[in-house]
């Protein structure tokens, strides 16, 4: 009964994956489909001559780093609050989770409007409270575009981090908290003595997920900036898309895809190694 599932996986994952490694050794374009074998030239070009590719790698690292640094502490704090105040907690949880489930394209457009230099809510707000000098074209300014994108990223993913933390905290038997309260531990002590140690593994898992997620990231940047201004906000996926389908260099795009695959594969293996015992339970 599991055979149809396997057929799908092989046809849509395995076959294309092998194909991509093959394509990465060629150069051709959509106008002239004569494929020229170039060996590893696409890869040497990528790492030695392609400043935007290197920049996109850096952006992936920045994206993963800032996601871990900002989303994990806030997510843990919110999860603790939600579990402690259950009456309003459930509704609050659903609300902070909303941004994650609505379409990333819709979210990107909403925030593109909010960052709009003339009518965007953010500049309007800054002017209203007398901070008009801070108003700027957030996504059009090379100094702020990436930060503006990160702001939206955090808005989307804090809900997911919170949810992951809630799952972990819920695995703690409630009796532990009860006896802690009887022993007179304060909320903060309770957090430090019981919750934090249990969160250590979670934090490692979340960081790996953030890195893997940064290599998957596409929709938001493609809609908000298309990698601009001056190619400063590209991540590897958007640069792949641009190279393959806009600059008509599918072979080069495939080579970028190979690097994304290798990086992600290593990261996912790491994640699986940590979680395997539970995955295959």
């Amino acid at each position: 009964m599991s055979l149809p599932a396997l057929v799908f996986v092989i046809l849509f994952i395995y076959y294309p994956l092998v194909q991509m490694f093959y394509l990465s050794a060629f150069r051709w374009n959509f106008v002239n489909p004569n494929m020229v074998f170039v060996g590893l030239e696409n890869f040497t070009r990528m790492f030695l001559n392609d400043q935007v590719y290197l920049r996109s790698l850096l952006n992936v690292v920045l994206l993963a780093g800032q996601s871990s640094a900002i989303q994990i502490p806030i997510g843990v704090a919110l999860a603790t609050i939600i579990l402690r105040y259950r009456r309003i907690g459930g509704l609050f949880w659903a609300i902070i989770f909303l941004p994650y489930v609505i379409s990333s394209v819709a979210v990107s457009l909403i925030w593109t409007w909010m960052y709009n230099p003339y009518f965007g809510s953010i500049n309007v707000f800054l002017r209203a409270v007398g901070l008009g000098f801070l108003a700027r074209p957030w996504l059009g300014d090379i100094n702020t575009a990436l930060i503006a994108i990160f702001g939206t990223v955090n808005w989307i993913y804090i809900g997911l981090t919170t949810t992951m933390t809630i799952a972990t905290l819920k695995s703690i038997p409630p009796s532990i908290f009860e006896s802690a309260r009887i022993d007179g531990l304060s909320g903060f002590q309770e957090f430090r003595k019981i919750t934090l140690p249990l969160l250590k593994e979670l934090i490692v898992v979340l960081m790996i997920i953030d890195i893997a997620g940064a290599f998957k990231f596409f929709d938001l940047i493609w809609v908000m900036t298309q990698g601009g201004p001056s190619d400063s906000t590209h991540v590897t996926t958007t640069w792949l898309y641009r190279a393959a389908f806009r600059s008509s260099e599918p072979g080069y795009g495939a080579a970028i895809g190979v690097t994304i695959f290798i990086f992600s594969f290593v990261i996912v293996q790491l994640l699986i190694k940590i979680t395997r015992s539970r995955l295959t339970r």
Partner: peptide
């Protein structure tokens, strides 16, 4: 794994 790696094939 990122879906984009199979986009070109």
């Amino acid at each position: 794994l990122p879906a984009i790696v199979v986009a070109i094939p």
